[in-house]
């Protein structure tokens, strides 16, 4: 059983990394096709039209609805696909597609290798406790309130996947790159030096809104306490988490984006205490 599981979660992570590269390639492919007069796929991660089917970032749809106080059917219908995916699998957009996370994840791995001592210290602090979900919701709601008060789309400027994807398109279509991309890469670099992922954990409104769409049957991390026995001051699952969360402990959601790295690491230790499941496992008391 465990051998099968180990293979499955290894392969899952391999496919995730492949998909991350594929979605970066997809963002490059869109402007390349357009410069060759093929308009089958247009848009970026704010909103993309694939063969006439609109897909809209739910955060953008909600913001525009709030600002205009009007139901724009294209927007609402376009937001349905990401919402359904989020209802089934959680925030997999972040872990499988978001270019900000892709860059940040690899940069964090490099920085962990450069500052191993500081990384261990940070892990000791954060490996037993998850950030409070309330902070996340308060920040998310504050941003939407800000855009309502100013009558001005604040969320658009905080959507880093959107900015990155549109800058990729600008670069390839020869429109030049703005200084906003420096802000995005500045955040990636700074978070690398701090060895903490504040943006994805607290601020990002795109992931925040996707985090709302959870049901009891959504894909989640299950922890089987009976099998969990590697223990120690540094839990392997905690150290493997790209967001620096504590997978075994309470309050994992809404921060966790179901990348499955902790499960892969757990399988490597041979205990297999962590697994994915649709809905709560009966053996799992926490979370």
């Amino acid at each position: 059983m465990t051998m099968v599981n180990r293979k499955f979660y290894n392969r899952l992570n391999f496919y995730r990394k492949l998909f991350q590269l594929f979605s970066l390639g997809f963002l490059i492919l869109i402007p390349v096709l357009i410069t060759n007069q093929i308009y089958a796929i247009i848009g970026n991660l704010y909103s993309v039209t694939i063969f006439g089917i609109d897909i809209v970032d739910p955060a953008m749809a909600l913001q525009t609805t709030l600002l205009t106080r009007e139901f724009i059917t294209v927007l609402i219908a376009g937001a349905l696909i990401p919402i359904i995916v989020a209802l089934l699998f959680g925030k997999v957009f972040c872990s499988w597609m978001c270019p900000f996370n892709t860059f940040s994840e690899y940069w964090q791995i490099i920085m962990r290798k450069i500052f191993p001592n500081r990384w261990r210290l940070i892990q000791r602090e954060t490996s037993k406790i998850n950030p409070k979900p309330l902070t996340y919701w308060v920040i998310l709601i504050a941003f939407f309130l800000l855009s309502l008060i100013f009558g001005f789309p604040v969320i658009t400027f905080l959507s880093f996947p959107g900015i990155l994807s549109s800058e990729i398109s600008h670069l390839i279509m020869g429109m030049g790159v703005g200084i906003e991309i420096l802000v995005v890469f500045g955040v990636i670099l700074a978070e690398g030096f701090l060895l903490k992922r504040y943006w994805c954990k607290f601020i990002c409104p795109v992931g925040g809104l996707l985090g709302i769409f959870r049901t009891p049957k959504t894909l989640r991390l299950n922890h089987n306490e009976g099998n969990c026995s590697c223990g120690g001051a540094l839990e392997p699952c905690g150290t493997s988490c790209p967001l620096g969360l504590a997978p075994k402990h309470e309050g994992l959601y809404p921060h966790c984006f179901n990348c499955g790295l902790c499960i892969k690491t757990c399988e490597k230790t041979g205990f297999g205490a962590l697994s994915f499941g649709f809905g709560k496992n009966s053996k799992d008391k926490k979370n």
Binding site: Y46, M60, P153, S169, M173
Partner: peptide, 28 residues
């Protein structure tokens, strides 16, 4: 004013423009 509220910066108009007339405004 209305335009700024509605535009979601999806870039599609610039991408379909065959003359590359439409550019996207940058941070400046």
């Amino acid at each position: 004013k209305e335009f700024l509220k509605r535009c979601i910066k999806c870039n599609k108009c610039a991408q379909v423009c065959p003359y590359y007339s439409i550019r996207m405004a940058h941070a400046e």
